[in-house]
Write a protein that binds this DNA or RNA. Structure first.
Lengths: 139, 139
DNA sequence: CGGCATCCGTGCCGATACTG
DNA sequence: CAGTATCGGCACGGATGCCG
């Protein structure tokens, strides 16, 4: 039995979301959004998805090199969480030294498309946001 | 001079994002995305934006009633952060008792559109994600 | 009514050391 | 190479009390 880090660390997050949206209410229809949003918006998931989107298939070490600043631990945690949601698959080659490859699933690529759209919006509007922040800071 | 809670609490987040994306790297173009994503994906921002999107203009207490489970403190923090980014405006009426109204800006409504798209995607794909999680849990 | 100040638990994440 | 285990700092957010 492997996977001990990610399993524990993810449980809390899931329950947090479920707990706040499982009951009725007008905003209830957005439960999935916050769920996925909170999955993707953590510190490293988006980086990982984008990088995999560019290269189609990468090894652990290649990902680590491509994502500047990420620790071994967080790369593992992030990859396991994305695997759990079905955004990527993990393929183990029982060689010595071991080799593990990661690639996006169709679902993962679909998510990537969404992120790209959001990316476009963000790039278009970031200047305005920064301007607003500046204005706000001296009020 | 007002605004003490939110200002302090936001500084760390901003610096965190900037610190990790201000340098070069292939994923650098996504800096704004993570910035906005981390703004929107906190515990209450999306609720707030959606609710304001429905009602066009709401008072503090009305928002508090509409967002189930939110504390006074977090509503204040959330509203200040969204105001800082220019997603909503805060209008104070110096009456007794005081009245404060919040409404989305054009920028905020534009962001809302993006969230709605993401919402659609999430609703379409959540079943698949949940299925994947189940499969993963018994592996 | 619409906040602010403070205390405090909990979870996220980095650093480090160890392993098949 | 690709992880796991553990410790510790710090940010996020809840509870409570006070105020113009």
């Amino acid at each position: 039995m492997e996977v001990t880090i990610a399993k524990k660390e993810r449980k809390a997050t899931s329950e947090k979301v479920v707990g706040h949206f499982s009951d009725k209410g007008p905003t209830n229809s957005l439960c999935p959004v916050r769920d996925i949003l909170s999955r993707v918006s953590d510190k490293w998931s988006m980086h990982t998805i984008i990088l995999l989107g560019k290269s189609e298939k990468l090894r652990f070490t290649e990902l680590k090199k491509g994502i500047e600043g990420i620790s071994q631990r967080m790369l593992t945690v992030t990859l396991r969480a994305l695997e759990e949601d079905g955004f990527l698959v993990r393929e183990i080659f029982p060689e010595i030294p071991p080799r593990v490859e990661y690639r996006l699933t169709d679902l993962g690529r679909s998510l990537l498309q969404q992120l790209m759209q959001l990316s476009d919006w963000a790039n278009e509007n970031m200047d305005e946001v920064l301007k607003q922040r500046k204005r706000y800071s001296k009020k």
